[in-house]
């Protein structure tokens, strides 16, 4: 009986495809490594304390003194405000979808429209925000940026929350219903508490998307060298700071763009890793 291995064609094909797949996988990871390496190696040398603690002084874009504090704070304000607004709208939607529309046609319809919204590029959100602001006579401002970012983040957040809430143990929900709680009480008190870790990571996911987005705030938040002090002020943002600094012809300013890119990348990495860490930590306290 011939159980011994003879190298037939199919074994060769198997080996070839296995290596092709492995190489593809390594290639994808290598791209991630290459991007991070580029940003760190280019950005670290020109990252100084002054850069992240000062606003641009006169002649900053010609290579003179100053930093990008305006953009860092502007981005944080924009993304935090946008995320907060998105949570206020998004959490009720996610809860409503899970509580009342789990299997209905309406639920399906809303989920599909969320998926479609998720696919709409941020430049379109920007153009939409801009035309609405024009119609109501609003100038580009922190508030405008926050609203558009909230709309941009909404579908990402709700879809992520919806998936998280689907994992909710049904027994727990039924137990609460059985002792006389209304559906909404269950949703607000039990589901939210039980699923806190997943909800937070959905929020952080949306925050990360918001803080990195440039095309939507380009139209709606404007850009300024000052730190915004009210909602009606225009606000700078990190992605745009990177873009504008790179567009100057001066190498010193371009170096600062790399440093700014490093700052943005670190924020996004921290948010991404933070959400993972939080969801591991918080899930210890919920019933499995």
């Amino acid at each position: 009986m011939g159980l011994k291995k003879h190298w037939q064609r199919r074994h060769v094909v198997e080996a070839i495809f296995k290596y092709v797949m492995l190489i593809s996988f390594v290639l994808v990871l290598a791209c991630l490594g290459y991007i991070l390496w580029t940003v760190f190696s280019k950005g670290l040398p020109s990252l100084t304390w002054a850069m992240i603690s000062q606003t641009p002084k006169g002649g900053y874009y010609l290579g003179k003194e100053g930093g990008i504090l305006n953009a860092i704070l502007g981005s944080l304000y924009l993304a935090m405000g946008g995320t907060l607004l998105a949570v206020l709208i998004g959490l009720p939607i996610a809860l409503y979808l899970q509580t009342y529309l789990r299997k209905s046609h309406w639920g399906k319809f809303i989920r599909i429209s969320l998926d479609i919204l998720w696919g709409i590029p941020s430049i379109v959100y920007g153009a939409f925000g801009f035309s609405v602001m024009l119609a109501v006579g609003m100038r580009s401002s922190l508030l405008g940026g926050i609203i558009v970012l909230a709309l941009l983040e909404l579908p990402i957040m709700v879809r992520a929350m919806d998936e998280v809430l689907q994992q909710m143990p049904k027994d727990l929900e039924h137990a609460a219903l059985a002792i006389g709680a209304t559906k909404l009480e269950v949703a607000l008190k039990i589901v939210v508490r039980q699923m806190m870790s997943g909800i937070i990571s959905a929020i952080l996911l949306a925050f990360g998307r918001g803080i990195g987005d440039a095309a939507s705030v380009l139209f709606t938040a404007g850009y300024t060298d000052r730190v915004p002090t009210s909602l009606t002020n225009p606000a700078a943002s990190l992605p745009l700071a990177i873009f504008f600094q790179l567009s100057t012809p001066f190498p010193e300013v371009q170096q600062r763009a790399y440093a700014s890119a490093l700052v943005l990348t670190i924020i996004v990495l921290a948010v991404s890793l933070g959400s993972r860490w939080l969801s591991v930590r918080l899930s210890k306290y919920s019933i499995k």
């Binding site: 009986m1 011939g2 159980l3 011994k4 291995k5 003879h6 199919r10 074994h11």
Partner: peptide, 20 residues
Amino acid sequence: KVDEQDIYARDIDVTEVRKT
């Protein structure tokens, strides 16, 4: 062992084992 041949031996082709 199938017919005195250990199917977990190193030089055995697992696809031949499953064909048999």
